[in-house]
Structure formats: C-alpha cells, structure tokens
C-alpha cells in the first residue's frame, strides 16, 4: 500500500499479506465491535479492479467475499486454513472506482468439520452482492 487512506479506520489489519490476496489487495479486516456477531472487511476500489463498463469486475467482488468468508471461517474455527466448498453470489448492484467496499460476514452454523456462512458486500447505502457459502474446516490431529 502506498499510503494510508483515512477511510480505512484505525485498528484495521491488512489481511492480504501473500499470494493472490496480496496481488489483488490491499484488503483489510476492520476492528470488531464488542457484542456484534458480524465480521467486517474492506477494500478501496482502484483501477486494476475494474471492468470496461466502468464498474467493479464481478471476479473481484467474488474474490473479496471469498477471502472475507475464508478469514471468518479461520478466525471462528481457529483452524490454520479452511477451504471453500461452495459459494453462491447474487450481483445486486454495481461498485464504482474509488468506492470503499465493505464485507459483512455472518456465521449461520458452525459444525465440527463444516461452516455455513452468509455475507453481504456494501458500498455506503448500496448493496452490491449477497452470498452464501459452505466451508470445510480441517480437524486438527
């Protein structure tokens, strides 16, 4: 990241530290609100995230929601890594250049080896994407 954008709050943690996450990032985990079961992540839309129609590419929106839900699965389960098994995304509205896009992730059910989650991507008052997904949680031996 070149310099800190004031729209990313103090206490946010860069979770795009390597691999594809870093390539498409930076992406941040936002500070938790005590008592709030929603986990939040954010990124700022730059030129590389766009499509030729002037909106954020659907692949980037799916990438961001996948990373946010995977991070949540890891944080909640304590596992080092969790794998996406299935992800369903509805593209509700377009994202724009310069937007701060926030992911809001909720765990629907945590079973021993599986986690069910839902998530929403929002920009300001606008919903961009809603997703449900299923993650495999490895059993620590």
């Amino acid at each position: 990241m070149v310099e800190h954008d004031p729209r990313i709050p103090e206490g946010a943690v860069n979770v795009s530290v390597g691999g594809f996450n870093r390539f498409v990032g930076p992406l941040f985990r936002l500070p938790e609100t005590p008592g709030d079961e929603i986990r939040r992540f954010a990124f700022i839309v730059t030129d590389k995230h766009m499509n030729s129609a002037g909106t954020v590419h659907g692949g980037m929106l799916m990438t961001f929601v996948d990373i946010s839900m995977s991070q949540t699965a890891r944080a909640v389960s304590g596992a080092k890594s969790c794998s996406t098994v299935s992800l369903n995304c509805d593209f509700v509205g377009p994202g724009r250049l310069g937007d701060v896009i926030e992911a809001r992730v909720k765990v629907t059910r945590r079973a021993r080896t599986m986690m069910f989650m839902s998530a929403e991507l929002v920009s300001g008052d606008h919903t961009l994407l809603v997703a449900t997904g299923l993650w495999k949680v490895p059993v620590e031996s």
Binding site: G18, M62, T63, I67, T84, L87
Partner: peptide, 19 residues
C-alpha cells in the same frame, strides 16, 4: 500470482476465470 500462501490456486482466481 494466482495461488494462496499454501500454494493452492485461489478460489477468487477460479471464479474470475469462470466469469
């Protein structure tokens, strides 16, 4: 560029390729 820190192809890249 396309893999995660475990060396596995990232789901985000697969979904982008699908789109």
């Amino acid at each position: 560029r396309h893999v995660n820190m475990r060396g596995v192809l990232h789901g985000g890249m697969l979904m982008t390729y699908a789109d």
